[in-house]
Amino acid sequence: MVDTPNAARQALEDVVLKHELEQFLYLEARLLDERRHEEWLDLLADDLHYWMPMRRNIKFGDWDLEFTSMDEEINWFDEGKDILAGRIRQLKTGVHWPEEPVSRFEHIVSNVELVSVDGDEIRVNSKFFCYQNRLQDEVNQFVGRREDLVRRDPDTGFKLVFRKLILAQNVMLPKVLNTFL
C-alpha cells in the first residue's frame, strides 16, 4: 500500500519505466518480424553480450548443472554485437538458403518484469514465444525466458547490454535457429 508521497512517486516511476521497457521490447520484436534487422542492431549496445546456454536433463535439485557455463562450455550463442552484425549481413545476402525464401516470424514478448534499477542500467525479465512459418508447411517454435540488462540511451531510449536466453529445449529440435530471440 502506498502510504507516503515518496513511495507514490516511486511506484509511478516504476510503472512508467516498465511501460518504457515494454515498448522497447515490443519494438525489438516488431523490427525482427518486419525484417528491419539493421534497425534492430541499432538497439544493441556495442558491448552487448548475447548468451543462450544449452540445457541439460537434470535431477530435481541439481540446478547448478542445468545450464552450460558461459566461460567453459558450449552454448547455443555466446557472442557480441560484431558476430550478430555478421549474421545480419548474411541474412541480407539474398543467398542464405535457410532464409530463402524468407520466413514468417512472429516474436511474441510477454511477462515483462522490472527487476532492478542501478543508475542508467536496468534489469528486466521477459518471456518470448517465437513462431516461424516458412515455405508451405515448415513450422518451428522457440519458447523461453530472457534475463536482460538494458542501458538508457539518448537516441533509442535503451540499448541492450546483456541478454540471457533460456530456451525450453535440450536437443535443438528445429534444424536451424536463424532469428534473434
Partner: peptide, 20 residues
C-alpha cells in the same frame, strides 16, 4: 570454443546453409 559455437549446427552461420 566460440568458433565451434558460431560455425556448427543450427545456429552456425556456415552449417545452417547446409541444413536447408
Amino acid at each position: 570454443r566460440h568458433y565451434s559455437e558460431r560455425f556448427n549446427g543450427p545456429v552456425g552461420f556456415f552449417e545452417s546453409d547446409d541444413m536447408e
